[in-house]
């Protein structure tokens, strides 16, 4: 792996929140919610990293922690070889030119009082205030065309568009600065399936043309498989497995990954009927009070007594796979 290509490297990132117990006394010490607890990964230029995991496992918090929208509690983010201090507003302001984000709810992520043209132009206005109005508008038109919007829509308001179109607007806004990285926080989960395909293919296409790196967060494993090069599986704020796409889907090494994969519907009724889903017992434990040792042990079919004692780290299993299961 040529390391010079790495544009983003996240090292044991932790995002913890203090939660006051509503029933407690005012002086009761606040509890800590470990939304993201020590996640590390590298991202190369032009690569797509898929992040999967069930609801509440810290995927979105991870995205916000990486972008410093929420200050990380611990750990570091290295962007283009520079260690980013979460308090250094100037450095972040500069870095934001190259890292953009696409959001889950396409309509809610657009200001209802701004026209599409104003929305897409905003990053340019903020980062390149010296550009003239005509230059900005020219750029906006070009990027609108690129994501499949027509020029005539430039003065319309977000609510006049469908969900898929709104997501295209969101993508246009993220693209206009020609960033190196776009973090997509469940960009397709609010859209219906046919539109999902359009948006995912648009992202793939743009990535190919512009050499974008993507961090693609989703809970739909089929979508993630389609777009990703590597996949990070999260559970309760921790990394379970980080593997090349094919290695992960063909030979999942972590029991949690296996359980997730067994739940993917097969588009063949005959096979689907006889499929064995490896159901997980119980619910997701609370991130305020996670299990000792391996966080997955309370629902793991392979759990042994050692799992409660030893805190497993992500370790290299094969060339393409890293897993945090003690038995893999």
């Amino acid at each position: 792996m040529p390391d010079s290509n790495i544009i983003l490297s996240v090292k044991s990132l932790k995002v913890h929140f203090k939660v006051k117990d509503a029933k407690g006394w005012p002086w009761t010490p606040a509890k800590t919610l470990k939304a993201v607890d020590g996640v590390s990964f590298d991202l190369r230029a032009g690569e797509t990293l898929g992040v999967v995991g069930e609801s509440g496992c810290g995927k979105s918090t991870l995205a916000r922690g990486v972008l410093n929208l929420i200050h990380p509690t611990e750990g570091e983010v290295v962007w283009l070889g520079q260690r980013m201090d979460s308090k250094d507003a100037v450095a972040w302001q500069h870095a934001r030119k190259d890292m953009q984000m696409i959001f889950q709810d396409p309509l809610a992520s657009l200001n209802p009082r701004m026209t599409i043209g104003q929305i897409i132009a905003e990053p340019l206005r903020v980062h390149y205030p010296e550009l003239s109005m005509t230059q900005v508008m020219e750029k906006v038109r070009a990027v609108m065309k690129e994501v499949g919007l027509t020029e005539q829509q430039i003065n319309r308001y977000p609510h006049e568009f469908s969900g898929g179109q709104c997501q295209r607007i969101g993508i246009a806004r993220a693209l206009i600065l020609e960033p190196k990285l776009i973090i997509c926080d469940e960009p397709v989960s609010a859209l219906d399936v046919s539109i999902q395909a359009q948006i995912v293919n648009l992202l793939k296409d743009l990535q190919k043309r512009k050499g974008l790196a993507l961090i693609f967060i989703a809970h739909d494993l089929a979508v993630v498989k389609h777009i990703s090069d590597r996949i990070l599986v999260m559970y309760l704020g921790k990394e379970m497995e980080l593997a090349e796409k094919h290695a992960l889907y063909d030979k999942p090494s972590h029991p949690y990954t296996r359980a997730l994969l067994s739940a993917i519907p097969i588009p063949d009724p005959q096979l689907e009927k006889h499929k064995v889903i490896q159901l997980l017992q119980g619910d997701l434990p609370s991130p305020i009070n996670p299990p000792s040792g391996c966080v997955f042990r309370t629902r793991c079919p392979q759990a042994a007594s050692v799992c409660a004692e030893k805190l497993p780290d992500l370790k290299v299993v094969t060339e393409d796979t890293q897993s945090s299961c003690l038995f893999s």
Partner: peptide
Amino acid sequence: SKEFIEAARAIGVPTWRIIFQHVVPNLL
């Protein structure tokens, strides 16, 4: 707490500009 405010912050819009461009018009 709306997502478009977070979007503005992700873009790098300065705080005063978020207040006057994104918050105030929606208070109208």
